[in-house]
Design a protein around this nucleic acid. Structure first.
Lengths: 209, 209
DNA sequence: TCGAAACCTGAGTCAATATTCAAGTTGTAG
DNA sequence: CTACAACTTGAATATTGACTCAGGTTTCGA
């Protein structure tokens, strides 16, 4: 599902071109992240990149196209980062804790890109939808597999996936984007306990009902 | 914390004025909700309202000001609707289920306003922050009280509050804004179970550890 | 009924900026 | 070295839409 083939005409063919493209992408991430899509300007991007205004259009068709490129990029980077931090052989509940911690750390290091993803909802809704649908589908699958293994209670996998993604997103927003007043581990531990046992006072001691 | 006093000069003084202001507010909600802040135009708002362009500026100072007014409005309406649906004397876990169901229903009936709240993050960040901080503070308090009564396990009240708000927001987005393929009750029940017992397979049967 | 305050009108002003383009510069294959 | 493709440049174009304003119309208290 790449977009490489249509972008051919704009792809750089020399080393110099590749360097310029990279500078523009980094500059765009910074500009969009700091000022938001509509406040951001192409001239702002090219200035940050140390290039002329027209150079932008050597590599991109429009303002919206770079934005979409950055959203997709963020999806890949996020999944990659989490996958690196969560071994494949741990049980689901452990994976949840490690995954959340990795996610919060990642957001802290990429606030700009994260803000771009969130804003995509209003600028490139299909890109945004896709971003979360990919996550939700993978999550739903993981939950279903874990249920089969008896690692978690079965049922409602899809709703749970969205609920858990929502938790991560808001914890990321609150404790990574807005403020870092608690460590990623602290937040992840609190959430992991909630995910594992819920709020019930009976959960640990031996259940009723 | 209202803004009534400074808005005096723009407040309507006749019946006709009140009617026009209301028409403009409704039109603005629809315009912003459908097209998003930046695509929305003042002329779009006044056309929907059946008024002339200049009339807008009889009641508002700027495009951003109406937008903020709508965000605040949404906060009040949401809290009011949930409070109406959640009796004060039920235990916390029941309140969670009823509250989430009420929230999803509310979002379904006010998709426009809900979209506006989400977009506020990029248009009027302080209004957005305030919107959720008010929710989170109340939530944290409720959780602490419930913990004292022994209705839930104590600890991490703030993180839990943000986690639970995130769950609601994403479930609302997925099952109210994007699609209504499941009933509010169905979604609320699934989430309530997760909130109560977590994912642990041991939670119901009688716990180990 | 009268007149002032409130309200309405919509063409016009003005600033912002996405995008184009024609002319120059640099890289590189042969 | 040379010539052509790749790349860069930034002034000019074109559109868009928030906001103003001077002049009408409606409301309503007295």
């Amino acid at each position: 599902m790449g977009g490489e083939e249509t972008a051919t005409s704009k792809a750089p063919r020399t080393e110099r071109g590749k360097r310029t493209l990279r500078k523009l992408l980094d500059a765009a991430a910074a500009e969009f992240g700091e000022r938001g899509y509509h406040e951001a300007s192409i001239s702002g991007i090219t200035q940050r990149a140390g290039a002329a205004l027209g150079t932008f259009y050597t590599y991109f068709d429009s303002k919206e196209q770079v934005f979409r490129a950055l959203v997709d990029d963020m999806g890949h980077l996020t999944r990659q980062h989490i996958a690196e931090r969560v071994p494949g052989n741990v049980d689901r509940l452990t994976a949840e804790r490690l995954g959340l911690e990795a996610f919060i750390e990642f957001v802290r290091e990429h606030k700009d890109l994260y803000r771009i993803v969130m804003e995509a909802q209003f600028v490139a809704e299909d890109a945004y939808l896709n971003y979360y649908k990919v996550f939700a589908a993978a999550y739903t699958r993981n939950l279903a597999q874990a249920a089969e293994k008896g690692e978690i209670r079965p049922g409602h996998e899809e709703e749970r996936a969205w609920a858990l993604i929502g938790m991560s997103v808001f914890l990321g927003m609150r404790y990574a984007v807005w403020s870092s007043d608690k460590s990623a581990k602290e937040v992840a531990d609190a959430a992991a306990e909630l995910i594992t046992f819920g709020l019930s006072p009976l959960a640990r001691g031996g259940g009723v009902m």
